[in-house]
Amino acid sequence: MNLVNALFGIVLCFPAVYGQVYTFGFCRDIPTVMPFQLELYLGTWYEYARFYLKELDGVTCARSTYSPNPDNTLQVVTEGIRKGRPVTLVGLGEVFDPINDPARGQLTYSRSTPVLPGGNYWVVKTDYNNYAVVYSCNQLGVFKVETAYILLRQPMSPSRRLLYGIYFYFLRFGINPWNFMRTDFRNCRRPVRYRY
């Protein structure tokens, strides 16, 4: 009976993940960037690739701008284009432990935004000037829900060496890097603010 209840609960949770990559298993505790310098991380990042997310399906020219709020949280504004129309998502970033692990936090969107309300946000690799790799894993019973991003400071292709290094990094922790989907930056025009 407990197994049936657990499976029923998991099935009910699937719509909440909005198409993120979910698989059987448990989240791993992946190390984050140490020491992490938030001031250097702030600014605009272009999305080179990401794991599939239903709410971002069809979005091209995606970029996110991170800026500090007076209450020590971060405002995260993600802009892109879907079917020729600008799309904007506004989120709130919070760091779990600013002293001991400032690269591990949570990104939350308002209830009116069609994305998972809150998810882990772990900066696992960055050089601050060129690239960053973000990973998220949330546990739903015996399933894990994963999201990952490869972010760049400029909307251009990174070197193969960098990409292979990122892919092998994920493989080391049992995460499938082939879940990455490349973000299209062809025919990008200047995004205009538009809210859902």
Rank of each mutant, 00 (worst) to 15 (best):
M1T: 12
N2T: 12
A6T: 13
F8G: 09
L12H: 07
L12P: 00
L12Y: 03
G19C: 03
Y22G: 02
I30G: 05
T32I: 03
Y41M: 10
W45R: 01
E47P: 03
Y48I: 05
F51Y: 15
E55S: 12
D57F: 13
T60F: 03
S64R: 00
T65C: 05
T65R: 06
P68K: 08
N69R: 14
D71A: 11
T73A: 05
L74A: 04
K83F: 09
P86K: 02
V87M: 09
V87L: 06
L89I: 11
V95F: 06
V95I: 15
A103G: 15
R104P: 01
R104S: 13
G105C: 11
Q106V: 13
T108W: 06
Y109Q: 04
P114G: 01
V115L: 15
L116N: 07
G119K: 06
W122I: 04
K125W: 02
Y128M: 06
Y128E: 06
N130L: 09
G141Q: 11
F143Q: 01
A148M: 15
I150V: 15
R160Q: 13
F168T: 15
L171P: 00
R172N: 12
F173I: 08
G174M: 10
I175G: 05
N179I: 00
F180E: 05
R182E: 13
D184M: 07
P191K: 06
